[in-house]
């Protein structure tokens, strides 16, 4: 499904919100295949809303969203399921699902009316079990997994859906530093090797600066977007938080507590 260097996500002048309340506007985003992009910003600025809007789980308020060269609204649900996959903050409704069963659900857009897995489907499941280090856990049930393991399962499910675009909402919350880096490394690998466009929201700005190709800073005003180094040069991170508590150190690319 993926084409190298094609513009997979093209967002122009987007406004997002609920019902008739706009919570963030002037969002622009251009991502080619193979690019990993983080969305950062303070709590409540609309990161999750943006992911849900891009994922067609809620309507946009204004502006343009093009996915894989077409307007988001032009796809029917079956087509969209083969173009866009999501990893949300909500836990799977049934914690009784086995790891393998859950990942297999990612193949639903491709299976027949009753959900029979073909050899190809099984190959995708196997590949992603391996890629996300889940082979030993495949018969485990979700309620037996740690937070980090469950997150890997959910990402493996999205990867098994084999879509050119993957959207993730806070994939690294509740994880320790090691597992945060592990998840982000896996996302980077998935983007670069499988030529997918991966967008995720996060609070780990310093990790995002080190690992991402592009970053979107949601500040509710100009919403700067670009490569981490450009954003650092243009001193955009300095304005992210009120300067009374934390300061951005551009030499190390991280935030320091103000003494």
């Amino acid at each position: 499904m993926s084409h190298p260097n094609r513009l997979n996500i093209n967002v122009e002048n987007l406004a997002i919100g609920y019902k008739d309340r706009v919570i963030c506007q002037n969002i622009d985003l251009k991502l080619a295949s193979g690019e990993l992009c983080a969305i950062v910003g303070v709590n409540g600025v609309g990161k999750s809303t943006l992911v849900r809007t891009l994922g067609n789980l809620q309507p946009k308020m204004n502006g343009e969203i093009q996915i894989a060269g077409e307007n988001l609204g032009a796809f029917n649900m079956d087509q969209l399921a083969k173009i866009l996959s999501v990893v949300l903050t909500e836990q799977p409704a049934s914690k009784n699902l086995r790891v393998q069963e859950l990942i297999a659900l990612g193949r639903q857009p491709y299976t027949n009316w009753i959900g029979t897995l073909t050899q190809e489907d099984k190959r995708y499941i196997q590949t992603n079990l391996k890629a996300f280090l889940l082979e030993d856990l495949k018969q485990r049930k979700c309620h037996e997994l740690s937070d980090g393991q469950l997150q890997r399962v959910l990402i493996a499910r999205a990867a098994a859906q084999d879509t050119p675009v993957v959207l993730l909402d806070e994939p690294t919350t509740h994880l320790d530093l090691y597992h945060k880096v592990q998840i982000l490394k896996m996302l980077q690998q998935l983007a670069h090797q499988s030529k997918k466009t991966i967008v995720f929201t996060t609070h780990e700005i310093d990790l995002a600066i080190q690992l991402c190709d592009k970053i979107l800073i949601l500040d509710g005003k100009t919403n700067p977007f670009g490569t981490p180094s450009d954003l650092i040069k243009q001193k955009h991170f300095e304005q992210l938080f009120p300067s009374d508590m934390v300061q951005f150190d551009s030499s190390s690319g991280s935030f320091k507590v103000k003494k």
Partner: peptide
Amino acid sequence: IKRLNAFLLGENYAQSLG
């Protein structure tokens, strides 16, 4: 059957699966 299986993930995930 297929929809019921998708619902095991939750409604948002089911929707994202088409």
